Simulated scan of single mutants.
Amino acid sequence: MAISEAFRKMPPAAQVGCWLAGAQALAVIGMEISILVKVLKYVENVFSSWSSDKGVAIYFMLLTIGSLYGVFLLVGGALNGDTIQIIGFCVFNLFAMSLAIFRYFQVRAWLYGRNVLAAGDAVFGMIRPEMIASVAVMAVVTAVFVVLTYRMYHSFGWEIYKRVGADLKMRRMFINYRLLVLLLKLNFFMFVGFAVSYIILILKSSDPEFAITIALVPVTLAVLSLAFWGLRRESVALMWTVVVLLCASTAYFVFKVARMYDPKQEEKYASQKPMMTYYTIVSLVVIAATLHQAATCLANFGYGLKERIEITRGKRSDMEQIQDYYVNAAGDRRMNLDG
């Protein structure tokens, strides 16, 4: 009930954006199901080998979960008036589109290299329209969101003033805070997606890395939860712990890239090297950006941002101590423009 009420109060551009993101998710998931069903129907022993044949299933998983995760980012940003998270949805959509493009070429190479019930080009011809359509849908939606995001930026601009006041320094700190929150959310998808892909495509249960990579998923969740808690509480100790762990994650991904191009490991990575390399590089970029934002937010601790955010969430009652706000007769916070 509360969510539906909040949705009705959204600006028109935000409502259109939410419906559009949901429609994209349904369209992409429908096409992914169609692709997977056709491959399972016409290709013999799809999951016979450890790596290459499972590539279709991995792309299906990444694109399906990615579509739903994009809706989560967009709706969360619209409900909270967070234009940074809405922009993050656009960037995330571009990343998902790039995975769909990778999938097109890798699936084509895989089908042409197999002995299938129908000729490889015939099977590829069956699924090619859906693969192209999924890329086109994400490209069109991202282009439309450039316009919608511009409109939402102006619609939600007042939210920053309501939350942190007219102080430009406080606004910059709040923007850095929200950007770090977004990057932590993106990190979760990147880490978990990489771990699952690596486990299914590359590793075998007998590999020493198998258990370590499985453990990466809950450890990642714990680290990111720690980061959210430390950021919200402005805990210097927790944030430094997160920075150290993110540095360790950077070393882990660099190690994985080195392994992919180790001649002794060439057979293990041969079929999935392009996609896994790309995914790893993007993950490293996201981690680097997260480290930068974590350091920036650490430098902002102790300057009053936490108190401002607590006030707007109703966790503090000392509203009268903040000169930039007043409460009207209806109990709503409004900017004080007299100071």
Rank of each mutant, 00 (worst) to 15 (best):
F47T: 11
M239S: 03
A13F: 10
Y42P: 00
A57F: 12
I3M: 12
K273L: 12
R232V: 13
M173V: 04
L203A: 03
Y42A: 07
W19S: 13
V196Y: 06
D318N: 14
T213P: 02
A215H: 06
I214S: 04
R233K: 15
A78D: 12
K169C: 11
S134V: 09
S34K: 10
M61A: 15
P129M: 03
I212C: 04
I202P: 00
L40V: 12
L337S: 07
S197H: 01
I132Q: 08
I175A: 08
E44S: 14
L148P: 00
Q293G: 07
Q293V: 05
E307P: 04
A27C: 07
V282K: 11
N80L: 12
A21K: 00
R108P: 00
M239T: 04
Y278E: 05
R151I: 05
A215I: 01
M170T: 05
V243R: 03
F7A: 14
R233M: 15
L111R: 09
T142P: 07
L186N: 05
V137N: 02
A57E: 05
F210I: 04
L201Y: 02
R178A: 06
G314Q: 03
A166I: 11
T312I: 10
G304Y: 06
L183R: 13
K38T: 05
G339Q: 08
I101N: 09
F124T: 06
I86W: 07
Q15P: 01
L291K: 01
Y325M: 06
E310F: 03
Y269H: 11
I311D: 00
V164P: 13
T149R: 14
V244E: 00
V254T: 06
V137H: 05
R114D: 08
V56E: 08
A227F: 02
